[in-house]
């Protein structure tokens, strides 16, 4: 029997898990494609509609549906990475019967899949934006991409940490799921931080997602800036959960495998 390097085993496992996730997500139910864009599309329609009904454009120089779409796509990317990572262990536990498959691989695979799904959703949005002639031009493309990649890393670290904690304390997973919906309203998705009264502004800036969304918006639209973005704060929220997640994962891997 030929011995394979651990990297080549790792790569085989990630490929196998990825194709399996694609099969279950899109293969059996064709609706999978629909759900991939549904969340963000619904939010854009609802809030763009609301806005149109109650006020004229409060954000000069910004095409409001595009503002909504860019924020919500990023938000749902993060949210889906976290909530799909949360269930990664339990959803794949039977596959741990094959010793090549490690729990970490299942989280990584789900993150990769969410990146793919989100990219597809973004392309659909861009197509719609072009067709309806929205103002979708990006001010600083590279910085937007950097913000999104950073957001993915934040989601991965936070998701891994949550998955490990949720495995040992079920309540933790429930708490994470419960806070996702309110997060939607306090993540600077339908408004800018600048538009808030100072008291609220100070409070909302404790939410790390606000900084990521503001960074994306600030670099996307010429009319907006990134003056409230605290890069150091974002870095803490990226590295600390990632470190804690990896630390407890390494300690707990055998226990996760054997349950």
């Amino acid at each position: 029997m030929v011995r394979r390097s651990s990297f080549s085993i790792f790569r085989s496992v990630i490929t196998a898990l990825f194709l399996r996730e694609v099969q279950t997500r899109f293969g059996t139910k064709k609706l999978g494609y629909f759900w991939a864009i549904f969340d963000a599309m619904l939010m854009v329609l609802v809030f763009a509609g609301l806005k149109a009904a109650i006020a004229e454009n409060a954000m000069p120089g910004v095409d409001f549906p595009v503002f909504l779409a860019s924020g919500f796509l990023a938000f749902f990317l993060w949210k889906n990475i976290v909530s799909r990572s949360l269930n990664a262990f339990s959803a794949n536990s039977a596959l741990f019967a094959y010793k090549q498959v490690k729990p970490f691989d299942t989280v990584l695979t789900r993150v990769l899949l969410e990146i793919l799904v989100s990219t597809m959703a973004t392309l659909v949005f861009i197509a719609i934006g072009l067709y309806f002639e929205f103002e979708i031009a990006v001010q600083d493309f590279n910085m937007v991409i950097l913000a999104v990649l950073w957001l993915i890393l934040f989601g991965f670290g936070f998701g891994l940490m949550s998955a490990v904690f949720a495995h040992f304390y079920e309540t933790f997973g429930k708490i994470i799921n419960v806070i996702m919906t309110p997060l939607l309203f306090v993540s600077a998705l339908m408004y800018t931080v600048d538009s808030l009264p100072p008291v609220l502004r100070e409070l909302i800036l404790y939410n790390p997602l606000v900084h990521f969304i503001e960074m994306i918006h600030g670099y996307y639209f010429t009319a907006l800036d990134t003056k409230y973005v605290d890069y150091e704060y974002m870095l803490y929220w990226t590295l600390i959960p990632l470190y804690i997640g990896l630390y407890f994962y390494v300690k707990g891997e055998q226990r996760i495998l054997s349950t």
Binding site: R4, S8, S12, V13, A16, L19, R20, Y98, Q100, V101
Partner: peptide, 9 residues
Amino acid sequence: VQFVSRIYG
């Protein structure tokens, strides 16, 4: 079967 074949490269 596909899954297992893949993890065995």
